[in-house]
Structures are given as structure tokens and as C-alpha cells.
Design a protein around this nucleic acid. Structure first.
Lengths: 131, 131
DNA sequence: CAAGTAACTTTCAAAAAACAAGTATAAAAA
DNA sequence: TTTTTATACTTGTTTTTTGAAAGTTACTTG
């Protein structure tokens, strides 16, 4: 996989420190990346699926995040149809292993924000290796 | 506590959705906020302490994040000395409750990035109510 | 052959982050 | 008493990232 210069900056960043908190945040410490992983848990596969998510991610950011996640090995992109070329994305183990982060974030929000809804059972079940 | 217009935008944002993952990310889904909570766990109290952290946060961002965390009730700011006025910050329960997020992020990084170091015992112990 | 669909890319204004200095208050040192 | 040091920020300026909308490419369908 070659990376053109245009997208290099989306993917390669200097490491700020060797602290494991800092390192993790460099991969998914932004407002969108974890939501994409959430969407994958709930069955999103195609570009359109993510676009349709409840937070209305801009398509340019979606494209760059998917590229980044793929480059970093959290997800994979596969062609499921030639002519017209269509792709689907799926979680790899490295990506499934961030599900505990989603769980801890969700627990916090449910405790402190009355507006947040209680996720369905499949959300809590995800990552417990029965998925 | 009154908020001047200049900092209103640092604090008030429209909610994107009622998803608990999304709501949590609006509070600490950025590259710096969780690092400040980490620093608090490790004993940082004063502005200078955070400034000295290993990731070299810019001071204007530090000021705005501390303000935001205080406004949202995750930390509190207290004067510990009049003349000259000196302040110290500390975690409130709402802030201590994000420690599990730090733990899950750290576990992921340790598993997937060889450069990340293993945090000291007090990091894993934090939030287990013996702190 | 016009319209529709999926998966992006491009454009560009606006917001946020990064960087470099500067400010206010007071203590302490020369 | 003038200078230096310290804390806790704030203020400009530049750079980067975001967000919103429109455009592109490669087909398929009526």
C-alpha cells in the first residue's frame, strides 16, 4: 500500500511521548474516530453507512479517518464487488480491542448526562468474543 | 460563576446526538483533556505542574481546558494562598470517574505499541477508591 | 440517454491548535 | 531600591484542521 503525499499528513504524526495514554489518544483521541468504530459494531460496512450515522460526519473527514484506521491496522477495506467497484470495511482485532474504551466512555456518559440513552445489549456484548 | 463571551465557545457546544459514546467524546474527545486528568492522578495541582507534563501542552490550550473541565464539574479550582493568589486544581468525582477510560486506552496502547511504557502501579490503582 | 447511486475528492471559509510574547502580582535577591 | 524570579495566565499571529457544499468517476437502471 503506497501513500500519496496528500494523505501522508492524515496518517503520520510525531509521537508526543511514550505514555500509553498519549499514544492511544494519537490514534483515536478526536471527535470522530471512536464513533466510526461504534458504527462498525452496529453493522456499518459501507461508506454510505457511516455517512448515515446519527452525528452526520462530513464526508472528507470520514474518508480521511477510514484511511487512517486502515493504515494503522484497526480496520480493513475489501472490494466486495468489481464493476462498479464497491468496498466494505470491517473491524480487525486491533480495532475490536478498542471496544473497552467505548464501553468506559459510555458508562461515564450514562452516569453524568441524563440525555444520553442506554445502548442496546449488543453494544455491551460487543468485544466479548461472541460477536 | 460567570463566563465571559471570550471563553463561552470553549465551554458550550451543541450536542451532536444522545449516544453516550458521542456525549463522552464531546467532553474529553480531544488530544489533551485526558492527559490533564492523567496528570491530576499523578499529583499535578498547579498550572505549572501541567505545563511541565511530558507532552508540552501550549499554555493557552491548558488554560482553556482547565476552564472547561472546571465548568463541567470534572475538576475544582481552589485558592490555597492569598497574596500572591495561588490556585490548585483537583479531581472531583465526575473527573475521577473518567479514570476507567484512561485505563482502557492505556491497555490498548501497551498491547499494540512497543514504544509505550508500562505505567506505575499507582496509575492502575487510581480510581479504585484507595486514592 | 437522462437520472440515480456509491464512494470519494475538491474547494474554501471558519474554527481550533500551535507558537511566541507579553502581562499582572508579589516575593526575594542584589 | 532596582533587578530578578515565580506563578498564572492572556494576547497576537500563524498554521492546521474542520465543516459544509459542490464536484468527480464509474457504473446501473428506467
Amino acid at each position: 500500500m503506497t501513500i500519496d503525499k496528500k494523505h501522508k499528513r492524515d496518517i503520520i504524526k510525531a509521537k508526543r511521548s511514550a505514555c500509553p495514554v498519549s499514544i492511544g489518544l494519537e490514534q483515536f483521541g478526536d471527535k470522530w474516530t471512536l464513533l466510526l468504530i461504534r458504527d462498525l459494531i452496529f453493522g456499518a460496512k459501507k461508506f454510505k453507512d457511516f455517512e448515515a450515522g446519527s452525528e452526520k460526519i462530513p464526508t472528507n473527514i470520514l474518508a480521511s479517518r477510514l484511511k487512517m484506521l486502515e493504515h494503522n491496522g484497526l480496520i480493513e477495506k475489501k472490494i466486495y464487488q468489481e464493476r462498479p467497484k464497491r468496498y466494505e470495511y470491517s473491524l480487525l482485532e486491533k480495532g475490536r480491542d478498542v471496544i473497552p474504551v467505548l464501553h468506559s466512555v459510555a458508562k461515564w456518559s450514562i452516569k453524568y448526562d441524563k440525555e444520553s440513552f442506554e445502548p442496546p445489549e449488543r453494544f455491551w456484548a460487543a468485544g466479548n468474543d461472541d460477536s
